[in-house]
Structures are given as C-alpha cells and as structure tokens.
C-alpha cells in the first residue's frame, strides 16, 4: 500500500506518571488526502494521541507510522514531514505575523530569502496580508488561529495535525477556518488529522471520524455510516415518574429496534419517527402511563456518541463538568435531608 501521507496508529497507549491511563490502546489508519476527525469530550485523550503521533511524546507502548516512517525511530524526520497546530497558541506576540513565519521557516533549515517569500505568500493566503507587519499580540482570536495554521504549513508538510483548531472561535470564525482547511486539502492533497469536541464540525467537515472516550476508540467510520448504523430515528418520550412498564409496551410496537432509558425518559430507536409517535402515545395512554413530552430526532453524532458510550456528549463537555456534578450531588443531598 502507498505509504505517502498515511497515518497508522497501532495499539497506542500512554500512561502518565504510572497511573493516568490517558490513551488506552488506540488503533486507526488515515489514508493520504483524507480529513480524519478525532472526536471526544475534554480529557478523552485527543491531545495525548496527537502528541504521540507528532513525535512530541513517547508512547508507553504501541507504535505510530507516518508517511511510512516509524515515529519513535525517526522523530526528527517525522517532524520535517508533518505540521502541527497545537491546541494552545504558540505565536510570539512580540514578533509580527511575518516574522513569526520567517523564524518558523528558519527552524526547518529554509534559507532566509525563501523563508521571506513563503511567509508573504502564506500570510496572504490566510487573509492576514493587512496585518502582516503587526505584532501578533494585536491579533484577534481568529487571526491568531490562522497565523498558527500558516506557521504549521511553512515547510509544506504532507500531513497536518490540528488539535482543536477552532476552540473558542465564534461560528463565523469556525466556518472561515474550515474554509482554509478544505481548500488546502483540495489544492495540495494534504492529509488532515483534526481533533475537535464540536460534533457538528466533525459531522460536516470530516471524511471519516473516530470517537474517543476515556482513552479508547468506541467507533470509527464516516459520519454518515455511523449515523445510518443507528438504524433510523431516535424518539425520546418523557413520562411521569415510575412508569417502567412502558419499556415492554413500546417494545411491542412495530418498527422498534431498541429502547434505552434513564430516569423518566425513554429513548426508542425506530425505523421511522413519524409513524412511531402516534402509536406510542396511543399505547401509553391505553396503559394509563402519562406522556409529558416527545421529541423526534434524525440521528446526529450526538446519538452516535450516546449509543457507544451510554452518555450524553454535552454532559462531559467543559472543564466544569465535574464541578457541576459535585454541586448537583450536594443539592440532591440537601433536598433529601429536608424531606
């Protein structure tokens, strides 16, 4: 098989300080020219995986092969062939956009005159021409991300890694940034490995995605295949408390694939939501179970995530997820104490 521009991960494991199993046996292959999305909530192990693939971090075990090169054996050569856009900003605020690019080019051994002309071209391509001679510390968030992208491309890599490149950008900025990526892919045929925790982004922009949770890949495929794999629509019914018999009632209806429930909400995967809802409401009413709400969803990656992890994606999002959970426990404890 043609190795140019390919990324192969075989059973990658990273254990931090002998205890935090951040990445737990991750395997996948990315073909040349593909946009591959690595989707997962905060703390899932995305950045750790990118670091191991991009010769920044030695895996505890497993191996990574990029462009036909084993990463741990040729870290320097791998660095020459890949571009990395880190999650955090790495531009030097005291240098202008152009100077940032020129220094980066120099670090790849590119001559000063060549560096200057590449920097100029890239900065125009990223639509930063007007700000080329401004200090990077004066750039807006979106401009900074574009500068980071330009810096990552200055040595014309075959493979580019983007770690949450659109984090913190407004929808317009995100769309603009993706415009550049799609264009690069079309013009140069570069392989793009991108991590994100925006489901819509992964859905729209990626040829294939892998969903990672707690350091393990739970699903891989094209967004459409993954959604189709759920087999139809998802109907969520909310009921009054303590109506567990409804599971059996719903299961008996035609076109139902599976029922899951948490608290008082029941998720039914069905062939078609439109035909299922009237039947379900009628059956429930006949059995004396009060329905308090119904939603029908065409499956999205949210449902895919829920399907493979048993959890809502949003619950996990944000650094405050744990704080919120702790607070909820306290509130619940107080309410119970009062009763």
């Amino acid at each position: 098989m043609e190795q140019r521009g390919r990324i192969v991960a075989e059973n990658l494991v990273k254990v931090y300080n002998g205890q935090v199993r951040a990445v737990d046996g991750v395997s996948f292959e990315v073909n040349a020219g593909e946009v591959f999305g690595f989707l997962g909530p905060n703390g899932a192990g995305k950045t750790t995986t990118v670091s191991m693939l991009s010769a920044g971090l030695r895996p505890t075990s497993g191996r990574a092969v990029i462009d036909g090169l084993e990463v741990s054996q040729n870290p320097e050569e791998v660095k020459r062939r890949i571009g990395v856009i880190f999650q955090e900003s790495t531009a030097d605020g005291d240098l202008t956009g152009l100077e940032n690019l020129e220094v980066a080019a120099g670090c790849y051994g590119i001559s000063a005159s060549e560096a200057r002309s590449r920097a100029r071209t890239l900065i125009e391509q990223m639509q930063l021409g007007d700000a080329a001679d401004r200090y990077a510390k004066t750039y807006s968030g979106g401009m900074r991300r574009r500068l980071e992208l330009a810096v990552g491309l200055v040595h014309r890599p075959r493979v580019i890694f983007l770690d949450e490149p659109t984090l913190g950008l407004d929808p317009q900025g995100r769309a603009g940034f993706w415009g550049f990526i799609q264009k690069l892919r079309k013009d140069i045929g570069m392989t793009v490995f991108v991590t994100t925790h925006y489901l819509d982004e992964a859905d729209e922009m990626c040829d294939r995605i892998a969903i990672i949770d707690h350091g393990k890949i739970v699903a891989t495929g094209s967004p459409n295949d993954l959604k189709d794999g759920l087999g139809g629509d998802v109907v969520t019914l909310k009921t009054h408390a303590g109506a567990s018999e409804i599971t059996t009632i719903l299961q008996a209806l035609p076109g139902v694939h599976a029922i899951q429930h948490s608290n008082d909400s029941y998720r039914a995967k069905v062939q078609s939501g439109e035909t299922f809802v009237p039947l379900a409401v009628e059956a429930a009413t006949r059995a004396g179970v009060g329905i308090t709400g119904v939603t029908v969803k065409r499956p999205s990656l949210d449902e895919v995530f829920l399907e493979f992890t048993g959890r809502e994606f949003r619950e996990e999002e944000g650094p405050n997820a744990t704080d919120r959970a702790v607070m909820m426990q306290r509130v619940r404890g107080q309410l119970q104490g009062r009763r």
Partner: peptide, 12 residues
C-alpha cells in the same frame, strides 16, 4: 506562552 513548544515542534 507556548512559544517554546513551537520551537520544539520543529526539527531545529
């Protein structure tokens, strides 16, 4: 500020 990380990401 992350600047050193950029340098280390290059083969310099």
């Amino acid at each position: 500020f992350g600047i050193f990380k950029r340098t280390r990401g290059t083969p310099a």
